[in-house]
Simulated assay, not measured.
Amino acid sequence: MTLHETRAGRMLTDAASIGGIATLVRAQPPTLGTTRLVLVDGPGGSGKTTLAGRLAEALRGRPAGGARAADSDAPGAAGTSVQVLHADDMYEGWAGLPTLGDIVIDQVLAPMARGEAGRFRVWDWHRHQRGHEVVVTARDVLIIEGVGVAMRRARSLASLVVWVEADPCERLRRGIARDGEDTRDDWERWQVSEREEFEREGTRAAAHVWVDGNCSLPD
């Protein structure tokens, strides 16, 4: 993933690496109480989860403990405390993109903006129901990654918005490789839904950092 450019003509040439993006994050003022909110958005299969995990490691100064929503540091941990949330844990299945804001805004960001803990129940894709609860408390950095997370209402609370994109055919290949050939129709419908979402929300143009998910961004 190679850094492209930023909005408003402001080139962030010092962020051509994961470490560079981490430096940008640290340089931003907190926007969610004492927390810097980083939103990593872009079409499915572009590399958002990988980037979010690597960014969390760079901020923490040590490897992450896992890749799920519950992966977080306790306050006071060495380095920068980070929590990573994944939109895949929030959507109510393949048709869940339109209601993502109910979780991201109403259950996570709005409570945190009031100085309270956010909380939501993880969607179980196999049982088609909500499962265990994830509690989101103040950290140095909160990273939320996934298609649609940088909606307008969320961007107003963000310190940094990162857009990740890749070739559509490659994204479809990655998605099917991960989820199985029997999800091809779901993935193709999803690609239509996400295009409509991004056009409606103006997400790509609003991002501070653009990343090419076809390539590998150096540490």
Rank of each mutant, 00 (worst) to 15 (best):
D88S: 15
G65T: 13
S193F: 06
G79N: 13
P29N: 15
T80P: 08
A78E: 11
G118F: 07
D186N: 15
R152S: 11
A8E: 15
G61D: 08
I143L: 09
L142D: 12
G9S: 15
Q129S: 15
R127G: 13
E57N: 09
G47C: 10
W94T: 14
E196P: 00
D186Y: 12
A27T: 11
Q191G: 04
V162E: 00
D89L: 11
A56C: 06
L3C: 07
T137N: 06
D88W: 01
I105T: 15
P29S: 15
H126F: 13
E199I: 07
A154N: 10
E5V: 10
E116D: 07
T49H: 10
L217I: 03
P75M: 09
V192I: 15
A27E: 09
C169F: 08
A150K: 10
G65D: 15
S46E: 14
D102C: 04
G180W: 01
I21W: 01
T2H: 00
E197D: 11
S72R: 12
L172V: 14
A150M: 12
T23K: 10
R189Q: 09
V25L: 01
H4Q: 00
L59M: 13
P43I: 13
G118L: 09
W163C: 02
E92S: 15
L37N: 01
N214W: 14
V135Y: 09
T203E: 09
D41E: 05
P111C: 11
A207C: 05
G180H: 05
L109D: 15
G118K: 07
P168Q: 05
G202L: 02
D167A: 08
A27H: 09
E197T: 10
S193N: 13
A64I: 04
T31C: 07
R155E: 00
L32W: 14
W123R: 08
H128N: 15
L59N: 07
D71N: 13
I143N: 00
W123P: 04
V40R: 02
D219H: 01
T49F: 06
M151K: 06
A154L: 10
D212Y: 00
H208I: 03
I176P: 04
S81F: 03
S72H: 12
P43Y: 00
E181K: 10
D41N: 02
T31M: 07
E5C: 08
V147G: 10
R178N: 14
A27L: 12
M151W: 05
R36H: 09
